[in-house]
Each structure stands twice: as C-alpha cells, then as structure tokens.
C-alpha cells in the first residue's frame, strides 16, 4: 500500500514538472523567431540582445522647433525639420550606444545649493529612414526608423 502511494506521488510530481516546463519551451522558440524586434519610443525600457540572423527595428520620434527670426513659413518648416532629424538621430544613438551620465549635487548647510546632471552621447548613425513628418504649431515631429542586424557590429 505504501509503495502504491509513493508511486502515485511520484507520478503526480512528474506531471506537475511537465506542466511547469511547457511554457519555458515555447518562450525559447519565440526568442529565435526571424521577425524583427520592435523597441517603441515609450518610457518603458526594453533590454534586448541582437542575435545572429536576427534584425532589430528601432523607431524614434524627434522634435524640433523653428527659430523665431525666419523669413517665411517654408524656411521655418525646413529648419524645424532639420532640428527634429538631429533629435531623432540623437535618440537612435542613445538607444543603440547608451548615454554617459554625470551628476553632481552641492549641499551647503544641509541644503541643496546646486544640482547638475550632464548627459552625453557620441555615435555614428548610418541608413536611418524618415518614416513620417508632421508640422503643427511651430513644432516639427519626425518619425525615424533604423533596422539593425548582427552583421552591422
């Protein structure tokens, strides 16, 4: 009788382990799919690694403002667009290469006198595509995409 109960317990335990391992198998299959991985321009940071034979699509939206002393609306649009493209390039560089951050707080007599944060990024960006451009109320927004593949690095 004891052996019978032990056998039943062993069988049920093995079934439970089997159920547990199933989702893990499916997740590994998903991670090797050939579809491009998308990193959206949101506050949530998604950390992904680029595997061989896999592409990664990075999508960002850059913003630019027209200067005050423009001679025509067309010039304002052109300049704002250029600034927006630069912003989008900066965002791509930040996402791919990362940002160097340096912070400094000056506290005197138990009070914060000065708080400084410096961020910097330096990179080279090639083959980025402008997907969409919108210009409204002096603000130009440029949606930009870049596809990264393993061979690029």
């Amino acid at each position: 009788m004891k052996y019978y109960l032990l056998l039943v317990a062993l069988l049920s335990a093995s079934m439970l382990f089997g159920i547990e391992t199933q989702p893990n198998d499916s997740s590994t299959v998903n991670s090797y799919t050939q579809e491009p991985l998308v990193i959206e321009n949101e506050s949530v940071v998604i950390i992904q690694t680029l595997k061989q034979d896999q592409t990664m699509l990075i999508s960002v939206t850059g913003q630019g403002v027209a200067p005050m002393n423009t001679s025509s609306p067309a010039q304002a649009y052109a300049l704002a667009k250029r600034a927006a493209i630069a912003d989008a390039y900066r965002m791509i560089a930040e996402k791919v290469k990362g940002v160097k951050i340096d912070g400094q707080d000056l506290i005197k007599n138990m009070m914060v006198k000065r708080s400084t944060i410096r961020t910097s990024v330096q990179a080279m960006v090639k083959n980025a595509n402008v997907v969409e451009t919108t210009f409204k109320d002096g603000l130009c927004e440029v949606e930009m995409e870049i596809t990264l593949s393993h061979s690029d690095f």
């Binding site: 390039y89 900066r90 560089a93 410096r118 910097s120 980025a128």
Partner: peptide
C-alpha cells in the same frame, strides 16, 4: 537626405542645472 544616409557623426551634450535643461547636438 543622401548625406544623412551616408552617415553622420553625432555629438550630444545635455545639462540640467537646478532642474533647467539645455542641450546641444552637433551633426
């Protein structure tokens, strides 16, 4: 557009001083 496709060097510096932000990007 062609120049942008070739690839540009980006140098970006941003400074936040007492919650006031200013940035400079050089392409």
């Amino acid at each position: 557009n062609y120049i942008h496709k070739i690839g540009l060097n980006i140098k970006h510096n941003e400074i936040t001083n007492n919650l006031q932000n200013s940035s400079t990007t050089i392409l």
